[in-house]
Design a protein around this nucleic acid. Structure first.
Lengths: 204, 204
DNA sequence: CCTCCGCTAGATCGATCGATCTAGCGGAGC
DNA sequence: GCTCCGCTAGATCGATCGATCTAGCGGAGG
């Protein structure tokens, strides 16, 4: 792993450090989020990351699939931060959940409806065809459920109830993002924010 | 359009009539649902539908994209039927909504987690890259929202409130399907059923 | 029976896919 | 200054992509 180096801007809009491996992972994360696994070619990744085949297969001997799994973990960590930020924005877990939806809506709108959940597009098309990527996606979704459940639990919900509610909260967030992106309209996410707050309060 | 002809079973599990155009559309609908647009090759479609290039480009001069749009409409109509069945299963709209989730869970479980929403996988990966397919997906989602909204409205919700709630209901269904498919577990959809019923009753 | 035409059959095209390979750069350690 | 090796550069591979093309089947109309 190389030391920190200056960063530059790329067409993906993501800041990318000089470290080649990191550039590859970040560029792949963005592209997977936007166009899924099959829709993203290695050549496009290399161009976006300003890297070459040699670098890619040096850092990821298993090729595209291995790189994609690493990129999903990277994107998932970013999304975890967004959730953490939303959930911690209020002492009221209902408001925290709603703010997650609003943060997602803001992020999507500001990025022309591209920057949402980093695993959804890839996960849906790969189910049953790449155990590695499916498992990686599953782990990300479970981490997010756990994060939401912890917040609900601390907010007064029973542990079992918090876990169940967290699952539906994440479902609604993921689904609302799909609707928002397809229609280029943040209304589904804003409505999800409102309704999830109601649901969270109703459960107490 | 040809007259009705005998059907046969294919590896997709879908009954397919002798009409070549219909076989193409049905096979494509199934494949898009399972592996998305980029993950589905024309060759695979032709094999699955027992058709050839000549037939495909005769019926769909614009090629893969035109066929995919038609297939999405076909799959969407099937899913509309599932929703209609769930929504009409009870006089209580809360139960109707919950039954939609249960029907989806049953369908997914029975098909090894493949037969869910016919547009989600394709829509997510194609956003911003195929106006035709994105618009077709959007129309399907809007139709489903309208169907749910009508039921809620008839169940006593105000028109505005019914539309808003219907949006979140569909979001939760779509998201819960994602979670269920990725984890090969129907729990997210069963939980969504329960929570959506609570939310629907809370809104009255 | 012959013609016509909607439809199907499948070879073939150039482009691009993911992957592999050899060659060579360039900083660290001696 | 020299060697060594982690890393990068990019040509090239066979396979497969979506698309186009000509050829020909076979039922309907005369």
């Amino acid at each position: 792993m190389n030391p920190a180096v200056p960063t530059k801007r790329t067409p993906t809009g993501r800041a990318e450090p000089g470290d080649t491996r990191t550039r590859l992972v970040m560029a792949t994360a963005t592209l997977l989020q936007r166009q899924g696994y099959e829709g993203t070619s290695i050549k496009q990744i290399l161009k976006e990351a300003a890297a070459t085949y040699g670098s890619l297969y040096h850092h990821f001997p298993q090729g595209k699939e291995e790189l994609a799994a690493e990129a999903l973990r990277f994107g998932a960590a970013e999304f975890t931060e967004l959730l953490r930020q939303g959930l911690s924005s209020s002492d009221d877990p209902a408001e925290g959940v709603a703010n997650c939806a609003h943060l997602m809506a803001d992020s999507l709108r500001d990025s022309d409806w591209t920057d949402g959940c980093p695993v959804a597009a890839t996960a849906l098309e790969i189910i049953g065809r790449s155990p590695l990527i499916q498992r990686t996606s599953d782990e990300a979704l479970r981490e997010w459920r756990g994060l939401i459940a912890d917040t609900l639990h601390r907010g007064g919900h029973s542990e079992v109830h918090a876990a169940a509610l967290a699952c539906t909260v994440l479902s609604a967030l993921e689904g609302a993002e799909l609707l928002s992106r397809v229609s280029s309209d943040d209304a589904p996410l804003r409505l999800a924010a409102e309704h999830l707050a109601v649901l969270t309060r109703a459960g107490l």
